[in-house]
């Protein structure tokens, strides 16, 4: 019987990403365990049970040590972990929030991450995203759920210089968004290496 191996939806794009020049770098983030958390109210009890202060300011994210906690709504967060399996993360989060009336669902397969780094990535993003990404208003710790090239994404700023972002996109939209990003980055690539 054939062995089922998980292949990355952007495997076919890796060569194209590698050829991009440094100012518009795109790298595929490794798979991470991700859980969607619903919790009506956060407080000391939730922070203690989860081991992280869930961000309550809209459109922000915080590092959690082994992952990230992203604000998705006033009662909804996205927690990721690079060290746990999806089952472990879901079980741990569920055990933590269930006594508080919350819920946790494994959504690891829902989204994949793209890391955008370089001095011109903000110009690339601006071609299909209406959010003001200037570091003055979208500094490290900012996040936004919005549309990028008409695909729904979660954007996160990783630096205060406006040159480091993570884009979370639904797996089924990843190929489309990769094509879109490569096209948007075209003007920053030099002709001789295309």
């Amino acid at each position: 019987m054939a062995e089922l191996l998980r292949t990355h939806p952007l495997m076919a794009w890796s060569r194209a990403f590698e050829r991009l020049p440094e100012p518009v770098g795109i790298t595929v983030e490794p798979f991470v365990a991700t859980a969607d958390v619903r919790l009506a109210s956060v407080g000391a009890a939730a922070s203690e049970a989860l081991g992280v202060d869930l961000p309550t300011v809209p459109n922000t994210w915080v590092p959690t040590g082994t992952g990230r906690a992203v604000w998705l709504g006033p009662d909804e967060w996205l927690l990721s972990s690079t060290t746990e399996t999806p089952e472990q993360l879901e079980a741990r989060i569920r055990a933590a929030v269930l006594p508080l009336g919350g819920s946790a669902t494994d959504v690891s397969a829902q989204r994949i991450g793209l890391r955008l780094t370089g001095a011109r990535v903000r110009d690339v993003l601006a071609k299909g995203c209406s959010i003001d990404l200037h570091p003055r208003v979208f500094a490290r710790g900012s996040s936004a759920q919005t549309s990028l090239g008409q695909a729904g994404v979660v954007l996160m700023a990783l630096s205060d210089a406006g040159d480091d972002y993570v884009v979370l996109v639904r797996s089924s939209f990843a190929g489309y968004l990769a094509d879109w990003l490569l096209d948007a980055a075209l003007e920053f690539t030099t002709t001789h290496d295309s």
Partner: peptide
């Protein structure tokens, strides 16, 4: 395009709503 102010997210483009 018109901006609509989401009570949570602030002003966003009309197509998001």
């Amino acid at each position: 395009m018109q901006l609509i102010e989401c009570p949570w997210c602030g002003p966003r483009e009309e197509v998001e709503f």
